[in-house]
């Protein structure tokens, strides 16, 4: 799973052979990437060790507390933008009081987990990939292995646990703040009283959407840790490689969040 030398495959001739080889490589990588995630879950029983506990708390602080400022700003403005756009349309029908319902439904079902996922992938995920990548090219991962310390237990598992705890909370926080942002715009731009806004919002707040949203957020958290750590562990070629790993991890995380988000939605509605 952790490679220390670039895999060099024989040059293929012919278009189909090249595509075939690419597909084989891709499947192999996806498999190894999944093994990182599964391996981290397999190490979860160690989470209550004294050392792991401390590390989980440290990671929780890094993923959750430290990302609060950016999540706050993003969530607030997403709510405001949503309310503004919807309000402009609803005004044609004199239905501005429904802003709350629309904002609630979108935030709870999609925007909460999706936006918090993107923000965390771009901040925490990227820094995770860069850190793991630097550790790999500096032989630090090799040093851990020589000390018989499993990097999956020592590095990935605490991050995984922290993210599984942090993502639903952040997603919920995003929903709430988006709702507040929407309310502010509704009140100032469309003169919807806050009580009306709130009543309409609560009409659309059903438990199912809430649960599915949190579930999605958790899945996104697992994806971010798995992909970022995998990209970090497979870094080669020094500093350039670290940059490359960071970039790939962010791109992959964004794509996976979009694609997996769609399928989870399909599964539940």
């Amino acid at each position: 799973m952790i490679i220390r030398e670039p895999v060099i495959l024989p040059e293929r001739k012919g278009f189909l052979a090249k595509i075939g080889q690419k597909v084989v490589i891709l499947i192999g990588e996806a498999g190894r990437c999944a093994m990182v995630g599964i391996g981290a879950f397999a190490q979860m029983p160690h989470v209550f060790n004294k050392r792991s506990r401390g590390e989980v708390i440290r990671q929780l602080y890094i993923c959750a507390v430290k990302s609060l400022p950016v999540v706050t700003v993003v969530a607030f403005f997403i709510g405001m933008v949503l309310a503004l756009q919807i309000g402009i349309e609803l005004r044609h029908f004199n239905q501005e009081h429904l802003i709350g319902s629309v904002v609630m439904a979108t935030m709870l079902r999609e925007m909460g987990p999706f936006m918090s996922g993107l923000v965390i992938a771009a901040s925490v995920g990227a820094s995770m990939a860069a850190q793991m990548g630097t550790m790999t090219v500096n032989d630090e991962i090799a040093a851990l292995e020589i000390m018989s310390i499993n990097p999956l237990r020592f590095l990935v598992m605490p991050r995984m646990v922290a993210m599984i705890i942090a993502m639903p909370l952040l997603s919920f926080y995003t929903c709430m703040l988006g709702l507040v942002g929407g309310g502010v715009v509704g009140y100032t731009q469309f003169t919807v009283p806050l009580t009306v806004y709130w009543t309409n919002a609560m009409d659309f707040a059903n438990l199912r959407s809430f649960h599915v949203g949190l579930f999605k957020a958790t899945i996104f958290g697992i994806i971010i840790v798995t992909v970022s750590c995998y990209e970090g562990f497979t870094t080669t070629r020094g500093a350039v490689g670290v940059g490359h790993a960071t970039r790939t991890s962010v791109v992959l995380n964004f794509l996976l969040i979009l694609i997996v988000g769609y399928f989870v939605t399909r599964l539940f509605y």
Binding site: N138, D139, E140, A142, A143, I146
Partner: peptide, 8 residues
Amino acid sequence: YLFQSAAL
């Protein structure tokens, strides 16, 4: 093992 890069 002492690594060339120290690896701390």
